[in-house]
Amino acid sequence: MNLHALRLFHLIASTGSVTRASEQLSISQPAITSQVKKFEKELSLQLLRPEGRGIALTEAGEQLSVLASRLFAVETQIEQFAHDYREGAIGRIRVAATYLPAHFLLPAWIAKYKQSYEGVEMTIHTTDSGGALHRLQQMEADIAIYGGIPEEYPDTIATEQLFEDELWFVVAPGHRYAEQHITLTEMMREPFVMRETGSSTRERLFALCRTHNAPSPRITLQFNGLHEAITAVLAGYGANFVSSLVVRDKVERGELCRVYVDSVQPINSIAVCTRQNEPLSAAASRFVDLIRSHPIRSQ
């Protein structure tokens, strides 16, 4: 079917005049009339009939005009969809995130993003460090937000560090090491309350001990959530090794106290990971741009 001729016919039907259609398109009336006649032959239907000094639609022409209106309305919708998708106004973003960014960073980022891009659907999957990269590699996530410093990223993963924060040893205010300077070996004599195996911060603590030839930490209580682990320390049991982003407010209010371990200044990296050599959708790209421009830095 000649869609150009259908469009000419639709404009004649909409304006009720070959003359007005000619004026809108800047095409001569004979040229329009000729193309519509060829279109009628193509369909083997008479679409227009003479009426006085003008033209009118035949019954077939009236019904085809209705169908053409629907067709070109859908065309407009398709054009709008393509524009919105290209500009990132619509789409879907699947984010895999480790616990720290998922609970302490992403909510603010997403709220800011959704103010401008309400039409974008977002799903967040919180997992451990290995799980976040696995979901990215398995095409189950578009981006991964990673908190920690993994020993090595796979070659298939592109990584951009967003910012760094400190990792702190914290205890309850009444603890004997509260606000004290001690050695890492002394710190490792204390019972630790930590998250489960697979937590990047937990792995960092073990790696720190290996690097400084200190005893491994005694994790005497573990939880699946960081909030629960911090709450146990707040109640007076054990110590925790945690991002400063998580406990800074509690330390400033005096609910928790830092322990200063000599010669140890561990840093935590917050990074965004994508699949290597695979461009992001416009929606995901704009989300990453927002994160870059609104980092939440430790003070």
Rank of each mutant, 00 (worst) to 15 (best):
N2V: 12
L3S: 12
H4C: 09
H4W: 09
L6T: 06
R7W: 03
R7T: 09
L11S: 07
V18M: 07
Q24Y: 11
L25A: 08
A31Y: 09
Q35V: 08
K41Q: 15
E42W: 02
S44W: 05
R49S: 15
G52L: 10
L57V: 14
T58L: 10
E59L: 13
A60Q: 13
G61N: 04
E62T: 15
Q63Y: 08
L64K: 08
V66A: 07
R70F: 09
F72N: 09
A73R: 15
A73I: 12
T76I: 11
Q77D: 10
I78W: 05
I78S: 13
F81E: 14
F81V: 15
A82L: 15
D84M: 05
E87Y: 04
R92G: 06
I93M: 02
I93C: 01
V95R: 00
A96T: 05
A96M: 04
A96I: 01
A96P: 02
A97P: 01
Y99Q: 02
Y99R: 04
L100E: 02
H103R: 11
F104N: 02
F104M: 06
L105F: 01
K114F: 01
S116Y: 07
S116V: 10
Y117G: 10
Y117W: 06
E118Q: 06
E118Y: 04
G119C: 03
T126S: 08
L133A: 08
H134P: 00
R135Q: 10
R135A: 07
Q137N: 10
E140N: 11
A141T: 04
D142A: 06
D142H: 08
I143L: 07
Y146A: 00
G148T: 05
I149L: 08
Y153R: 11
Y153I: 06
P154C: 11
P154Q: 07
T156D: 06
T159M: 09
F163Q: 04
F163E: 01
D165E: 13
E166Y: 03
E166W: 06
W168D: 03
W168R: 05
P173W: 10
H175K: 13
R176H: 12
Y177V: 09
E179G: 11
Q180N: 07
L184E: 13
R195G: 03
E196T: 14
S200A: 15
R204C: 01
F206A: 12
F206V: 14
R210P: 04
T211Y: 05
T211L: 08
S216M: 15
I219V: 15
Q222K: 12
N224I: 03
N224V: 09
G225L: 12
T231H: 14
A235C: 07
Y237S: 06
A239R: 00
F241S: 05
V242H: 07
V247H: 00
D249C: 09
D249G: 08
V251H: 08
R258K: 14
R258C: 02
Y260P: 05
Y260E: 13
D262C: 11
D262N: 15
V264K: 02
V264C: 15
Q265W: 07
I267C: 11
I267S: 14
I267E: 12
A271W: 02
C273A: 14
E278G: 01
E278K: 14
A283N: 02
F287N: 00
F287R: 00
V288P: 01
V288K: 02
I291L: 07
P295Q: 11
Q299E: 12
